[in-house]
Amino acid sequence: MPEARCPGGELGAFIILSLVTLIPAVVVVTSGNIVRSALSLIPTFLGVTGLYILLHAEFVAGIQILIYAGAITVLILFVIMLTQGGSGVRIRQINEQVPLGAMAAVWLGFLILLVVFRTPWQIDATSVPQYNVSSVGTAFLTDYMLIFEVTSLVLLVSLIGAIIIARREE
C-alpha cells in the first residue's frame, strides 16, 4: 500500500544531525584546550555516522564509528597525552594570518556552493542503490580489485615501517 511519505521526520533528523556534526566541529577549531578539541571530534564523527544512516549506507556508518570515533580519535588523544606539556597548555588557534584564512574560507565556500547548485542531483527515491555489505565486497573484489590490493599494500608498508622505526630505538 503506497503511503504518504513524511519528509518532516527525515528533515528533522537531518537538521539535528547537522547540528551535532557542526557545533563540535566549530569547537574543534576554536577551543583553546587541545584535548577538548580532540574530544570534540567524536560527536562530529557520530553526527556524520547518523547522516550515513539517513542515506542507507549502514556499512560505511559502522566503519565510520569503528575507525574514526573509536580508533583515530583515541590515537590522537593518546599522542596528545604523551606529549609533555601538550595537554595542559592553553593554545591560541588563531594567528595573525586571519584575513588570508578568511579569504581562503570564503573562496572554498563559494566553490562548494557552486558545485552544489550546478550539479543535477538525483532526487528520485526509487533509485536508492541496494547498498549492503556483500555488494561492497563484490565491488572490491571485481571492479576495484587493483585499487583494493594497492591500498592493502600501502597499509602493509606503513605497518612494517612503524615496526622498523620502533625497533631502531631499542
Binding site: 574530544l39 559502522g62 569503528l66 573509536g70 580519535t73 583515541v74 588523544l77 555489505v133
Partner: peptide, 25 residues
C-alpha cells in the same frame, strides 16, 4: 536486527575507550 550486527557491536565496543581515556585525563 541490524544487517551490520556484529560490525555495529565491534564499533560500540570501541567507543568505550574514549570515555575511559576522557575520564582518566
Amino acid at each position: 536486527d541490524l544487517n551490520i550486527g556484529v560490525l555495529y557491536f565491534a564499533a560500540m565496543a570501541s567507543l568505550t575507550v574514549v570515555g575511559i581515556l576522557a575520564g582518566g585525563w
